[in-house]
Amino acid sequence: MSFSLATRAAALAAALALAACASNSAKTPEQIVAERAEARWQHLIKQDFAGAYAYLTPAYRDVVPQEQYRRRFGSAGAWTNAIVHEVSCEPEACTVKMRITTQVRVPLFAAHISEVTTYMDERWVRENGQWWLYQSL
């Protein structure tokens, strides 16, 4: 029995899609949320606020325009590093403890302190099968 090249290509594509789904479904909520939290912070570090905005809940994005979200961030510091320190999840929500390093840009303080490292908690929620950062209005 001989299969055409198109049939073989379709079968290979289907097998690859199933493998991708299987590897994705094998991840725990903690792993998925950690990856999303770290990716969001990489956007913030690069000052790609549009990229970071995409990780916010759809409900938040329905109410707060992207430009208004962008204005929430000042210029007194620049994030230089963000590491997921810990993730703990319930069925529909996770708390992520992030370790954030910021370069101080205020001249009066920068002479004495050039970098500050702190921890902050983020709340992530699952909606329609996807994890989103919960941001209060």
Rank of each mutant, 00 (worst) to 15 (best):
I45L: 02
L5Y: 10
I32D: 05
G77N: 03
A34F: 10
V87C: 03
C94I: 09
R36F: 11
A39N: 10
I32A: 11
Q130C: 08
I45W: 04
A39F: 01
V96H: 09
S23G: 02
Q130M: 04
K27S: 00
F49H: 11
I83F: 09
R105E: 14
L18P: 00
E38N: 11
S136G: 07
I32F: 05
A111H: 04
A39Q: 13
K46I: 05
T102H: 11
T101F: 04
S114G: 02
R61F: 03
S136A: 08
T101C: 09
Q31D: 07
G51Q: 11
F49S: 06
A14G: 04
Y60G: 00
S88G: 02
A11V: 02
A6Y: 13
P29V: 02
R123W: 00
E30W: 03
T80K: 13
A111F: 06
V106Q: 15
W131K: 04
E67P: 10
Y55V: 04
A14E: 14
I113L: 12
S114R: 12
S75D: 15
A111V: 12
V116A: 11
A6W: 14
V125A: 01
A82E: 02
P29A: 09
T117V: 06
A26F: 14
A6F: 13
E127Y: 10
L18C: 14
F49A: 02
A82I: 02
F109W: 10
A9T: 11
R126V: 03
A78E: 14
C94G: 03
W41L: 01
S114T: 12
R99L: 15
A6L: 14
K46F: 07
A52N: 00
E115S: 13
F73E: 08
K97M: 14
T101D: 06
P65S: 10
A17F: 05
A19S: 06
E115C: 10
R72K: 11
Q31T: 06
H43E: 06
A9G: 03
A110D: 11
G74C: 01
W79I: 02
T117K: 00
A19G: 04
A15V: 08
S88I: 10
C94F: 07
T28P: 04
P107V: 03
V87M: 03
V96K: 06
E86Q: 14
I113E: 14
R61W: 07
Q135C: 05
V125Q: 07
E86S: 02
G51K: 04
V87D: 01
Y119T: 11
A111D: 10
V33K: 01
Q66I: 13
T118Q: 14
V125C: 03
A110Q: 13
R123Q: 10
Y53F: 12
S114K: 15
E115M: 13
R99W: 05
